[in-house]
Design a protein around this nucleic acid. Structure first.
Length: 559
DNA sequence: CAATTCGGGGGG
DNA sequence: CCCACCCCCCGAATTG
């Protein structure tokens, strides 16, 4: 029987802690100890630590070589509960939660700080980030959160969501600590090969300068390829009307400037976003350590704070190389979102299609369409994204006939959005409510149209339809994020006794860095984690959640 | 001068 | 035709 303890940091490196009973109430006296790390290390029997913030406390423990089995992150829970209660955007700190509980003035959350590139957030983040609060107040907030979980639409799922989000926070801190193996020398050689040498003075590298010259030559005058307005003007002078300088728009035209322009854009992006200065800023001692932000997006997907870790260009992945004698097990969840739709909608036909580990889209086209695999794929993704035009619509109609329950599930979510209602993921993460226009646009949430046509506003305007596409996609993307958290938790547990380390996670993809001899066991653990997460998240369904895995020395060699 | 927006690219 | 969903990051242009 694993124990549950509450813990908080106190000034000077110490800790306050207390054991909790089955109901989450203190089961003994509160004690204060001088060393937080020692307090945790000396209690291996504790199965779950209840604390304010994983990001605030766990790096210190990891820096001392202490891992915990599980935790309950009060501030993450607060965020999820507020969302469920339709109060997203209110301050999420434990101090704010306590203030709400007692009708006191609610302190705002501290502003998000920028990440320090290359830093190992362990010494700096010695304590929680929010306003201070007494330990007894933290215990009160926790007890009240237990009650609020019970009041949720599906209490058990909501508790699972909080547990999963907390596990994700542990993984995020551990991945930051471990870092993604990164060979700066390989990266530099690659930059040199792609961009040429750098000139003194910090201007464009040679290859970009050459391409800019080629563009100018093609137009017959000096044109700056990095200034869209200049490029549009130059094309107009050449008798070609382009509305933008986007890749797909330029690619349509036959002009000698097009090829060097497209090449310039590709390389310019690498130079500015993943070039020498990025390397300088973000890679230390052979590791890239982004700061992951679990739940950074409304749908529950993660973001990172600086470093662009979730947008590493494919060509740059050559620099991600396993240590000597080690391997990277790169794993990608196959057709995740359609499988999730099958599981949450319980559509019998789609569950059958998703009940095998082989390619879902091929099976789909065999069953539902005379159409090709790619057409079947487009139709299904169109249903999930809310496609409004294009060839896919014809196949979408066939999809609706064949899998009515699946399509109805996302259609219902879309209608909810159009009518201004919230939707929830399978575990209960909740979409933002329609709020005052200014606030919402700030948060990037499509709003209903108000006065333009003088109508009633609900369910009619282009903005309402945009909101419908948002909620339609939210239930699938967000439930996939639910699954991903449980998958990470399962994988973390399965590899706990190995030397293997989780070093990267990107929505539906994980990388584990491990000694070569552990690679097979790691791949097996990943496959098991996928199906286990499917069962825990969505219950018993025939749906499979397979991974494609590759054991490689370089990330770029996978897939 | 600093902060915000725009345009374009990268990822899933 | 390539669009639809969620994001990050950069430099230049614009705005306060």
């Amino acid at each position: 029987m694993s124990e549950r303890w509450a813990l908080d940091a106190v000034e000077g490196g110490g800790a306050r802690l207390v054991p909790l009973d089955r109901d989450g109430l203190p089961a003994g006296p509160v004690t204060t100890e001088p060393d937080l790390v020692a307090a945790v290390r000396s209690r291996p029997e504790v199965g779950r630590w209840v604390w304010r913030s994983t990001a605030g406390l766990y790096p210190r423990l990891l820096a001392a070589g202490v891992r915990v089995e599980r935790c309950y992150d009060v501030e993450a829970a607060e965020q999820l509960l507020l969302g469920h209660e339709g109060r997203l955007g209110e301050p999420r700190s434990a101090a704010a939660a306590w203030a709400r509980l007692h009708d006191r003035p609610v302190p705002p959350d501290p502003p998000a700080r920028a990440a320090e590139p290359g830093a190992q957030s362990s010494l700096f983040d010695a304590g929680p980030t929010g306003p201070e609060l007494p330990f007894t107040a933290l215990l009160e907030v926790y007890a009240d959160q237990e009650r609020r979980h019970g009041a949720a639409e599906h209490p058990d799922r909501m508790r699972l969501l909080t547990a999963a989000e907390s596990a994700g926070a542990l993984v995020a801190a551990e991945m930051h600590r471990a870092g993604l193996p990164w060979r700066a020398d390989v990266h530099r050689a690659l930059l040199r090969e792609l961009l040429g040498e750098r000139y003194a003075g910090g201007g464009e590298p040679r290859r970009l300068a050459e391409l800019a010259d080629e563009v100018s030559e093609a137009f017959g005058r000096r044109v700056r390829p990095d200034l869209p307005a200049d490029v549009v003007r130059a094309f107009a002078e050449a008798g070609i009307r382009v509305r933008s300088t986007r890749r797909w728009e330029l690619a349509k035209h036959d002009h000698p400037a097009v090829a060097p322009l497209l090449e310039y854009k590709k390389l310019y992006r690498i130079w500015t976003a993943h070039g020498w200065s990025w390397l300088q800023d973000w890679v230390r001692e052979g590791r890239f350590r982004p700061e992951y932000v679990p739940g950074g997006t409304v749908s529950g997907r993660w973001t990172t704070n600086g470093g662009g870790a979730l947008q590493i260009p494919k060509v740059i992945r050559q620099a991600v190389v396993a240590d000597e004698g080690w391997r990277l097990v790169v794993a990608d969840a196959a057709q995740l979102e359609p499988r999730v739709l099958a599981a949450i909608s319980r559509d019998p036909g789609l569950m059958e299609v998703a009940g095998h580990a082989d390619d879902l889209y091929t099976r789909l086209s065999d069953r539902a369409f005379p159409a090709s695999r790619d057409q079947a794929k487009l139709a299904l993704l169109g249903a999930i994204y809310g496609q409004t035009s294009g060839d896919g619509l014809k196949n979408l109609a066939a999809l609706r006939r064949r899998y009515p329950r699946a399509v109805a599930y996302v259609d219902d979510a879309a209608r909810a959005g159009e009518e201004g209602r919230v939707v929830r993921t399978w575990l209960g993460r909740t979409s933002p409510r329609s709020v005052a226009a200014g606030e919402a646009e700030e948060a990037g949430i499509p709003q209903e149209e108000e006065s333009a046509t003088g109508g009633t506003g609900t369910g009619t305007g282009a903005d309402a339809r945009a909101r419908g596409r948002f909620t339609r996609n939210f239930v699938v993307q967000g439930s996939a994020a639910d699954w991903a958290l449980l998958m990470l938790a399962a994988l973390r547990r399965a590899t706990a006794g190995m030397r293997a380390e989780l070093v990267f996670f990107q929505h539906d993809e994980v990388i584990v860095h491990c000694p070569a001899e552990e690679a097979d066991a790691v791949a097996e653990a990943i496959h098991s984690a996928g199906d286990l997460a499917g069962r825990i998240a969505f219950g018993e369904t025939p749906v499979r959640f397979p991974f494609t895995t590759a054991t490689v020395e370089r990330y770029s060699d996978a897939k």
